[in-house]
């Protein structure tokens, strides 16, 4: 591409990239949370076969580079399974798995942090396992897990920048496109960097407010 200055179309490009980054982040965070909690519950309730298998997978996801996982899913899996997969699908799939692995770890340790005596009391009073989970475990585990969840969310937001490597036009990819065209790397990457920074701060602030709200009634809970 020729060396050109910025033009009126660039903010739109920026906004599109931002939308893609936020979209992939939100999708993988939500799906990852659901799956991560499922993994954690399989583990907590010691579901045979399922629990150990999921844990091995989640160990792999935690202990290998996300970029490699993205390549594996985008380039490797289509060859193996003879299917087509778009960059966006590969990105969401990979980041969902990766997020799920970390959510599982956070959820397991938050649930473990709950005093067992309460659970025995609840059982002895005849509450079903389901209502113990909903009414006793979940509200306490959520408060315990909040700081780790906020940290994870901020981190996963940064991790989304890797999906540009498989061709998803996210914020980082937009940065590359603008940089190639304008040859203004300092300006371009400052704008992109500040965008991520602001997003992260907004995310952390929202999480912090949620945590404060959850904690409001729990100041005395010793959690």
């Amino acid at each position: 591409m020729r060396n050109q200055g910025f033009n009126w179309h660039d903010p739109i490009l920026w906004a599109q990239g931002l939308g893609v980054s936020v979209g992939v982040f939100a999708a993988s965070m939500i799906l990852g949370t659901v799956i991560g909690i499922f993994i954690a519950l399989c583990r907590v309730y010691k579901v045979p076969v399922v629990a150990p298998v999921l844990l091995v997978i989640s160990e792999f996801l935690k202990n290998s580079p996300v970029l490699v996982q993205l390549f594996l899913v985008f380039f490797g899996v289509p060859v193996l399974l003879q299917v087509n997969i778009t960059p966006a699908e590969a990105a969401i799939f990979t980041l969902t798995g990766n997020t799920a692995a970390f959510i599982a770890v956070i959820a397991i340790s938050a649930i473990d942090a709950i005093d067992r005596g309460q659970l025995e009391a609840a059982r002895s009073f005849g509450h079903s396992e389901r209502s113990i989970l909903r009414k006793i475990i979940a509200p306490q585990a959520l408060v315990v897990a909040m700081p780790a969840l906020i940290g994870l969310a901020v981190n996963q937001l940064q991790v989304t920048s890797l999906i540009s490597a498989i061709g998803v036009i996210d914020l980082t990819k937009v940065g590359q496109i603008l940089n190639q065209r304008t040859w203004q790397p300092f300006i371009v990457w400052t704008i992109i960097g500040v965008t991520y920074f602001i997003l992260s701060r907004l995310l952390a602030a929202a999480g912090g407010r949620l945590e404060t709200r959850l904690r409001r009634h729990m100041d005395w809970a010793g959690l």
Binding site: D115, G117, Q118, E120, A121, A122, S124, F125, I136, P139, Q140, V143, H217, M218, W220, A221, G222, L223
Partner: peptide
């Protein structure tokens, strides 16, 4: 049957 526990085991939340 309802039980009262040595360590209370109240629900802190």
């Amino acid at each position: 049957c309802a039980t009262v526990f040595q360590h209370f085991n109240l629900y802190p939340h």
